[in-house]
Design a protein around this nucleic acid. Structure first.
Ligand SMILES: [Mn+2]
Ligand SMILES: [Mn+2]
Ligand SMILES: [Mn+2]
Ligand SMILES: [Mn+2]
Lengths: 139, 139
DNA sequence: TAAAGAAGTTAGCCATGCCTAACTTGGATT
DNA sequence: AATCCAAGTTAGGCATGGCTAACTTCTTTA
């Protein structure tokens, strides 16, 4: 029978951690506690704490003093939030919003986008890329 | 000389309270603790607590056991978040997102929209309302 | 191989924002 | 005016997610 993957209920903080961990792994090949801390602008102690929690929740495998790898569940969540981040960024770039503002706003908004809203903005973004007519003089 | 209104740093929770209080006042004429609690789906105790805090922060005037009114600062904040809520709702409605999903997503997203992002989406929404051509077949 | 420094962990703390249970207040009913 | 009950408040607790300070482990270097 098909395996029912329990929809993990993840907070904004959890999503930010997973997203950043995946990004570090993709760019550096690994994600150390110190890297995660620096990248998120928080203390190493906070990262250690969260990493232990995520291990307990089965989102990553963590070996004390060693390192961590995302589980399948963790990577799925990470890719999912990364997708929302990317789409929102694309969309706002299209609208000509300043890069710094985009980063700030997307970092918050990305955690509140349901699948159907995501699809709608995705579709609109695609249309706008094709016909950028009405993008002139937006702000 | 011009009065510099200190930009009050408000959390998502504070914005939700203020927005709801303004809405209650606009529709019922007043905002009782029990109304706010029911409307936000939280306990009266939590509301009492927050209301006392908002009073301390000068966002409303609160008289124990009596009632409360928004200060100018509080009402400004309330109108501001209400505006973000309305715009996002309009925008997603235009995209054909389901009402329930809109409500859910907007309630979260509204707290992460900078002024320039707001203006950009505002402009886009206006354009789309004028030429709804590319809104066909979005989802 | 021993020491030093970087990385990681633990302990204890704090703010936010929610809860329930128990108590108080005030307005309506009689 | 006494009583009742809805509304309001207080006390105490909990989860989340930060922090610093102090300690431990690992790695690199002399
Ligand atoms: Mn984020
Ligand atoms: Mn992100
Ligand atoms: Mn909200
Ligand atoms: Mn709202």
């Amino acid at each position: 029978m098909p395996v029912k993957t329990n929809a993990v209920r993840s907070s904004a903080a959890v999503e930010d951690y997973l997203e950043r961990i995946l990004e570090l792994i993709n760019t550096k090949g690994y994600a150390r506690v110190v890297d995660i801390a620096t990248s998120l602008g928080i203390s190493q102690a906070s990262v250690t704490n969260m990493v232990q929690r995520l291990d307990g929740e089965g989102l990553l495998n963590y070996e004390k003093y060693r390192g961590l790898v995302l589980t399948t569940a963790g990577e799925t969540l990470a890719r999912n939030i990364a997708r929302r981040h990317q789409l929102l960024t694309d969309f706002l770039k299209l609208l000509g919003v300043d890069e710094r503002v985009i980063e700030h706003d997307v970092e918050g908004m990305e955690h509140h986008i349901s699948p159907s809203t995501l699809r709608a903005i995705e579709g609109l973004t695609a249309q706008l890329k094709r016909r950028p007519a009405l993008l002139a003089r937006l702000n």
